[in-house]
Simulated assay, not measured.
Amino acid sequence: MDGVPEPHSGWTFLTNHARVLAAIADDHSARIRDIAARCRLTERAVQKIIADLERDGYLSHTREGRTNTYRIEPGKVLRHPAEAGLTVAALLSLLLQDEADRTPLSEGHSRPHAPA
């Protein structure tokens, strides 16, 4: 039985496909249950997303006993024409930055501006 994700309304910056891919990149042998909990999705939704990603060549898996180990294709280019040339590796490098590298803007910090 799938868990019920927290309700959400409105738009988000990331698609569920990007969230699932990032979760797998963080742990290549994560269970669907764990990916679903991390991404706040149902297990069934995660299974469908993984099937989409595998069908289109972004992801593959091998079965080791009762565990799946996923392999991401880092050189695969993203699908949308506006993202032409952006690879999976480039996307994941943005999504999986180390927390220490992030400067919270909400704490009064601002990013440096380029000189005009």
Rank of each mutant, 00 (worst) to 15 (best):
D27Y: 11
D27F: 10
S29P: 05
S29Y: 10
A30I: 11
A30F: 06
A30Y: 06
R31E: 13
R31Y: 14
R31S: 14
I32P: 02
I32D: 05
I32V: 15
R33D: 11
R33H: 08
D34V: 02
D34K: 06
I35V: 05
A36F: 01
A36W: 02
A36M: 01
A36C: 03
A36G: 02
A37P: 05
A37R: 14
A37I: 10
A37T: 10
R38G: 10
R38L: 13
R38M: 12
R38P: 03
R40H: 10
R40I: 11
L41S: 03
L41K: 02
L41V: 00
T42G: 12
T42M: 04
E43H: 07
E43R: 09
E43P: 07
R44Q: 14
R44D: 11
R44I: 07
A45V: 08
A45D: 15
V46S: 09
V46M: 10
V46Y: 09
V46C: 14
V46R: 07
Q47F: 13
K48P: 04
I49W: 01
I49P: 00
I50S: 00
I50R: 00
I50V: 15
I50M: 03
A51V: 10
A51N: 10
A51K: 12
A51H: 12
D52S: 11
D52K: 08
D52N: 13
D52V: 09
E54W: 06
R55D: 13
R55H: 11
D56C: 09
G57H: 01
Y58D: 05
Y58F: 08
L59W: 03
L59K: 05
L59T: 00
S60Q: 00
S60V: 00
H61I: 00
H61A: 04
H61E: 02
T62A: 13
T62P: 04
T62Y: 09
R63Q: 04
R63D: 03
R63C: 03
E64F: 01
E64Q: 04
E64I: 06
E64M: 04
G65W: 00
R66G: 11
R66H: 14
T67I: 09
T67N: 10
T67G: 06
T67K: 10
N68I: 10
T69G: 06
T69Q: 12
T69E: 08
T69S: 07
Y70G: 04
Y70H: 11
R71A: 09
R71H: 09
I72V: 00
I72E: 01
E73R: 03
P74I: 02
P74F: 01
P74T: 03
P74E: 02
P74D: 02
G75S: 06
G75T: 06
G75V: 01
G75E: 07
G75Y: 00
K76P: 05
K76A: 13
V77N: 10
V77A: 08
V77Q: 11
V77C: 07
L78H: 05
L78E: 05
R79T: 13
R79L: 12
R79H: 11
H80Y: 12
H80D: 14
H80G: 07
P81C: 04
P81L: 08
P81R: 13
P81E: 08
P81M: 09
A82T: 15
A82Q: 13
A82K: 15
A82L: 15
E83A: 15
A84I: 06
A84Y: 06
G85W: 09
G85T: 07
G85I: 08
L86Q: 15
L86W: 11
T87H: 00
T87E: 02
T87F: 00
T87P: 03
T87Y: 02
